[in-house]
Every structure is written in C-alpha cells, then in structure tokens.
Design a protein around this nucleic acid. Structure first.
Lengths: 113, 113
DNA sequence: TCTATATATTAAAGTATTGGAATATATTGT
DNA sequence: ACAATATATTCCAATACTTTAATATATAGA
C-alpha cells in the first residue's frame, strides 16, 4: 500500500482542473500533446508542465509515434479516482447515533446540537 | 455532478497527510479534537486548522457533546476515496496497442519507444 | 461568577504551486 | 545539413498553502 505521504502527493498531483481534465480525456484513449492543448485551451508550455508533473508522479506515461508524444494512463488508481469524482451522491452520510464514545469517553453533559 | 473546479478543490482539501489520517480515523468512528491531536502528534491549533478546512469543504461536520466537539464524516465521497487510496494495485495499466489514432491522426513514421 | 478544560482564530513567516515568457530540444521531411 | 513541426525546459513573479506562536472563545463544574 502507498505510504500516507504518497497518498497525499497523488491527490495533489491530480487536484488541478487542467490535470483532472487531462486524465478524464486520457480515459477515453491516447492523446498527443497538441490534442490536449486543443481541449484545454491553455498554452503549449503550460500543457507540457502539467503533463510533466503527472508523469513525475507516475500517473501517466507516453511513447513516441513519429514526432508526436502519445500520452496514456499508467497508474491504475487513476480511473478509479476519476470515476468516483464523477459519481453523483444523493445524500450526506448519516450523522452518527446519539452520544457515541470517543476516546475521552462519552461526555456526561447534554448534547448541544 | 461536481464541477471540474469543485473536484479539484476536493482532492486538494483531502491531499495532506494529516487530513488523510484524520479522515481514515473518522471512518472508524466519531472522534473529538483531543483524540485527533493524540494520534496525529501535531499541535492543537494545527489540528483545529485542518479540521476547519475539511469542514469548510463539507467533508466533515461535528456536533457538541458537553464541551467536546465530536467530528464525523459528512460527504459520502470520502469513504470511497479513502478506500481506493488504500487499495493495492498489482500492476500498471496496459500500454495502449501499437499506433492508436490521436486527433492528429496516426503518424506514418516509426515508433521510437 | 470564577476557574479549568476544550477548541478556535489570527497573524506572521516559511514553503510550495502556478502560469507566462522566452528559449531549448528533438524529430521529420527536403 | 536545413527548415519546420512538436514538445520540453527554465526562470520568474504571483499566489496559495502550511506551520508556529500567541491569543481568543466557549462550556462545564465548583
């Protein structure tokens, strides 16, 4: 299992609108840099920076096809996370039942709200 | 479905070792602030700051029990993400088959690696 | 009401992330 | 070898995040 630090790192690597969009598009299939530049609408150097970061964290990789770099998903956790982010959750988790026991013990006072 | 920006925001809210640990512990049950201070081993004000951030993004909430604040998970996406982060993935995603078609078209040159 | 306990807030300082601009590198076709 | 295309890198200013330290607030019990 990933260390706590690696888990945090991974979430931060994914946690940028441009990078989430890149990963979502890569889920549909391989894309070269100019494809990505096309749907992101940001500068080419900035696209490269985001791709480079994602690759640094092992989320994606690429191979050369002529002079194109074809990027694809590499870390299998990515599709799982992307799917969950798109999921619709109808309601909040149920609040815990009255007066659960914390380490300090169930406080004898009355619940305020 | 959450907007792209909200999805990024959420991942960044979770993406810190202390906050991941907090959420993991809250999955086991309600915890008050001093419980959390106990297992994180960081200062009480810093714990409060992390809790406040998680609450600002709707990930958690609390109720009062006497003078204790009992924190619990609120956003149902949290357990799903925490579970995935702990999952063991044995191998990388398979590299795409040779010469897939990108928007620019399948380049006629030879693959370099 | 006074005190102790539990938690929150604020400010300041340090650190990391981001995007723009300019430039560099690599590969193909000529 | 040269020009054109595709992508990467570097540097920098701006912004955002994190932590520490000090202080503030709220509640319960005496």
């Amino acid at each position: 299992m990933r260390s706590l630090d690696k888990r945090a790192e991974l979430l931060r690597a994914i946690g940028h609108p441009a990078r989430i969009k890149i990963l979502e598009e890569l889920m549909k299939g391989v894309k070269c840099v100019s494809d990505i530049e096309g749907f992101l609408g940001i500068s080419q150097p900035n696209v490269s920076q985001h791709l480079s970061l994602l690759r640094r964290y092992g989320a994606i990789d690429y191979y050369m096809d002529g002079r194109l770099k074809c990027y694809f998903l590499r870390d299998p956790i990515i599709p799982d996370i992307i799917k969950i982010l798109k999921k619709d959750y109808i309601k909040e988790l149920p609040a815990p039942a009255c007066c659960p026991v914390t380490k300090k013990g169930k406080y004898p006072g009355t619940r305020k709200h």
